[in-house]
Write a protein that binds this DNA or RNA. Structure first.
Length: 504
RNA sequence: GGCGCUAUCGUCUAAUGGUUAGGACAAGUGGUUUUCAUCCACUAAAUCGGAGUUCGAUUCUCCGUAGCGCUACCA
């Protein structure tokens, strides 16, 4: 039975890289009919951020990445723990790590280290000066049993606590057989005697990950490539404890455009930021799934269900992938166009509200039916890359636009002609009865108007459109006019055309 | 400095011991459209370098080179 886990540190936000790791471990677990475990790695008390786990859960729920054990968000917003291998929070498992460390010390596979941070720092400086590799010099490993006892006594009298270091075998090598990279050999002499238990009684990652993955019966560890160099240490700890190591699959790094590891400094990396900008979960999931994985076919559009079906560790590639938002935008506009109109409108509403609030645009939105917004959404969906663009793109449906005089004149026309046309249009609209303000009737009437007056299409339609929307790039006028007449009244059409004429 | 990983169009990637090295995004051009977008068609764009193995290497091996990662009482 396959069991995978996602084991984030609660540092506040969900990194794109974390999402990719969580997604892959989820896809693999589901594909194999296994279990997906969520474990929170909070062994660094300094980095703990309040509410981080709730936030993580919310984001994962949003995107459809599920867990079978660990923490769950309840309808009331509180967290609940569920699963047989808990607790799933490392700070609640301290006794297990301490017991493991103690056992290792007793069997001389680990040792107490009494070195001060000053000595350690000095050591590093010396090594750097000599251009030697920075490693612990195993000073405390050489202490006799009596010396250790003596030190232990001294420490406890002064209220200090030693750390525990894992004793890497002095010779030999460990082979990591990675599911993505294949066999990698590490000589023991280049491996550091890592601290596994800190002086505050908390384990470091290296001990905690081994103890937990073993006790939670994890079969496959799926994590980022940055962990590859510490994997031999983990395998050695497994063996020292008499346990069977898990299988490993190290995922290629997600990169900034300059090919360094994706970081906050070079743009957005928080999944919640993408969500709030109006990237759809379908787009985010599809895009992130293709970072370091692909189905080896030419199909690019995948739902979560399809990903589960096709996911295969063997199809993960080895080299890092640049995070390119162009492609994300393409996925997003694709899924926006696919979405059902009423659902899209509901998702759009908060973005409209936010835009109006920011611009202090006042009007009574309750006077406008949901259908009105649906129709606006319908004409805009084709050109929307993110939901957050809706406010600005459609502002002219709610407030009178500003006019760029040059924009009002079609390229094959002139200001005199435009003025004439617009004046005629005012007359045209005033003669129209309210019932004619539907897209179909309008289109027909306007075409008649154009041919009766012997105008070019552009001479009429361009200034009409720009005087209504104020935009260089906007949809065609028929739908706009019928919606404006419906939303703001047909009088508004004439008012806008008059205002435009003033600017000519 | 040490150790490790990686290397195909700008980006995500496919493929193969023999191909015109394929697709998608982005870019450009043309068509459609009053404009933008959509849609359609087309164009440009890549096997890091050097040896070796081989009839033949982008593919396998080695050596370079470059990029990146790790090198904490952080994960």
């Amino acid at each position: 039975m396959v069991r995978t886990r996602f084991a984030p540190s609660p540092t506040g936000f969900v990194h794109i890289g974390s999402l990719r790791t969580a997604l892959f471990s989820f896809l693999f677990a589901r594909h194999e009919n296994g279990k997906h475990v969520l474990r929170i790695e909070d062994t660094d008390q300094n980095r703990y951020v309040e509410g981080a786990v709730e936030n993580l859960l919310k984001v994962m729920n949003n995107l459809g990445v599920e867990f079978d054990e660990g923490y769950f968000l309840q309808p009331d917003g509180n967290m609940m723990e569920r699963g047989e291998k808990g607790p799933y929070l490392q700070s609640k498992r301290l006794d297990k790590y301490q017991a493991a460390a103690k056992k290792l010390v007793q069997e001389q596979k680990a040792y107490y280290c009494f070195c001060s941070s000053e000595r350690l720092e000095e050591l590093r400086k010396e090594q750097a000066a000599l251009k030697r590799p920075a490693m612990y010099d195993k000073h405390c490993k050489k202490l006799t049993t009596q010396e250790v006892e003596q030190k232990l006594l001294e420490f406890s009298e002064s209220g200090k606590k030693p750390v525990v270091r894992f004793a890497i075998p002095e010779s030999g090598a460990t082979v990591v057989n990675d599911l993505v990279h294949g066999e990698i050999t590490y000589e023991h002499k280049v491996l550091d005697d890592q601290v596994i238990l800190k002086s505050d009684g908390f384990p470091t990652y290296h001990l905690a990950v081994v103890v937990d993955d073993h006790e939670m019966e994890i079969t496959h560890v799926i994590r980022g490539d940055e962990w590859l160099p510490s994997t031999p240490k983990h395998i050695l700890i497994y063996k020292a404890l008499g346990w069977e190591p898990t299988l490993y699959a190290h995922l290629p790094l997600i990169l900034n455009p300059d090919k360094s590891k994706l970081s906050k400094r070079q743009g957005d990396v928080a999944v919640e930021d993408f969500l709030s900008k109006g990237y759809l979960k379908e787009a985010l999931i599809n895009f992130v799934a293709f970072l370091g994985w692909n189905p080896k076919s030419e199909k690019e559009l995948f739902s979560l269900t399809e990903l589960i079906q096709d996911f295969d560790l063997k199809k993960i590639n080895k080299s890092g992938a640049v995070f390119d938002t162009n492609k994300l935008d393409w996925y997003n506009s694709h899924y926006i166009r696919q979405m059902n109109l009423s659902e899209l409108t509901n998702k759009l509403l908060p973005y409209w509200l936010k835009y109006w609030e920011e611009r202090q645009i006042q009007f009574d939105k309750t006077a406008l039916p949901h259908e009105y917004f649906e129709r606006i959404a319908e004409i805009e969906r084709e050109r929307l890359k993110k939901l957050s663009e809706i406010g600005e793109r459609t502002a002219y449906f709610f407030v009178r636009p500003n006019y760029e005089p040059n924009l009002l004149i079609w390229k094959k026309s002139d200001s005199q002609k435009t003025k004439e046309v617009l004046n005629n249009l005012i007359e045209f609209f005033e003669k129209l009865d309210s019932a004619s303000f539907t897209k179909i009737i309008l289109e027909e009437r306007l075409k008649n108007f154009i041919s009766e007056n012997n105008y070019d299409n552009g001479t009429v339609l361009w200034p009409l459109r720009t005087s209504l929307t104020g935009l260089e790039k906007s949809p065609g006028p028929y739908e706009v006019i019928s919606l404006l007449a419906f939303g703001l009244g047909k009088q508004e059409i004439s008012e806008r055309i008059k205002a435009a004429i003033e600017r000519l």
